[in-house]
Amino acid sequence: MHTRTLAPIALALAALGGNALAQSSVTVYGRVDLSLAQQADAVDNKEVRNGSGSRLGFRGNEDLGDGLKAFFQLEHRFNADDGTQSTTRFWEGRSLVGLEGTFGRVWLGRDENPAYTYSQSVADPWGTDTVASNGSIVNGRIGTTRYSNTVNYRFAIAGFTAAAQVAEAEGNTPATGTGTKKPYSLGGSYANGPIVIGVGYENPAAEEDYWASINGSYDFGMVKVGAFFGTGHDGSDDKRQSWLVSATAPIGQGQLRASFGQLKNKDTDVILDRQVAIGYHYALSKRTTVYADVVHEGRDDIPDNYKKTGYDFGIKHNF
């Protein structure tokens, strides 16, 4: 993502702190993404909505010498359609600080969990954004994208990346069921040329829940194909399974995206989500994209007044 340096702030702080910021950098970044949309599996409601999470963020690092760096990141999420906060939490996206060196990367605060980063979101061609999101399929309606009050570690070498996260029970509500245990998550990936493989294991705050997943993709150049499988138990100890197949293909200055997947409660034999989606995202520049997506959803006992087909037409600008 393109960023620009906060030179005036850095210069002002340097004037106050002498040479303390000589090896430091701070950047501001963000995204505004809005679409005209009708969601699937929802009542008839054509609206202007966030296609993906509109955001404003700050990140920076300081070279401490001998290969050691300090870093931080703060990310605010907002609804670009009306300017309000997306949640009551101001730094909804991220709020973290840590150290990085030859030992890897260690940080504290609020952040994505590694199962989501390395196995769930990357398996979805839309990255769990827009009306075509496969979020409920890749997280089983069990996992949670982010946790607060976390301790994190990540290490990468020779194409392998491994990460772990543990959180306090405080401030982390399970997606299903009740419970107060400390959530934890593990994730990893291997990338070698056109091949990418990822795994994830997430144990949220409820007493019985967990979600394990594996994904893989192969890039043939003209098309990249992917597959995902997830299994686990919800907070009521019901077994859930999901699968997803996907494909993306570069066409002109854009990308064609397609997916088909399902989430099922294996104990009750109820389909919780089944959807097929297709979309095209066209890059007007390195920072600005226009897009259109169509998704058709079906599940057991979907209400008669709900739309089964959704769509969006949007524009996304990164800065």
Results as ranks from 00 to 15, higher is better:
D66P: 01
D41I: 00
H296K: 13
S86R: 15
D237P: 04
T88N: 11
I278P: 02
A162I: 15
T88G: 10
S246T: 15
Q120E: 15
V294I: 14
S54V: 06
T289E: 09
Q165K: 09
N45F: 08
Q38Y: 03
V28P: 03
A169H: 14
T268C: 05
I142T: 06
I214A: 12
N149Y: 11
R4D: 09
L16I: 13
Q262L: 04
F58P: 05
E297Q: 10
N215Q: 12
T88A: 12
F103H: 03
V225M: 12
T145L: 14
D33A: 11
H317Y: 14
K239M: 08
G314D: 03
Y280R: 00
P194I: 01
D129R: 02
A191K: 11
G261S: 01
M222W: 15
A156K: 07
V151A: 13
F71T: 06
G51Q: 01
A167Y: 05
A12H: 14
Y29P: 00
V97Q: 00
V48E: 01
K308C: 03
L21G: 14
H317I: 12
F78S: 08
S54Q: 09
G230E: 06
T128N: 12
L108Y: 01
T268H: 06
A156P: 04
D300V: 06
L56A: 08
G171V: 13
G221R: 10
D238F: 14
G98F: 00
F319A: 04
A164Y: 13
G83S: 09
S148V: 05
I302G: 08
A167E: 05
A123W: 00
A206S: 15
G261R: 00
Q165V: 09
G216Y: 08
L68Y: 12
S24L: 07
L56P: 02
Q262K: 10
V43D: 10
D304P: 04
K46F: 13
I214L: 11
D273G: 02
L16M: 10
S25D: 11
R31V: 14
A10C: 07
D301G: 05
N139R: 08
L6N: 12
G177H: 10
A37F: 03
Q85N: 15
G51N: 04
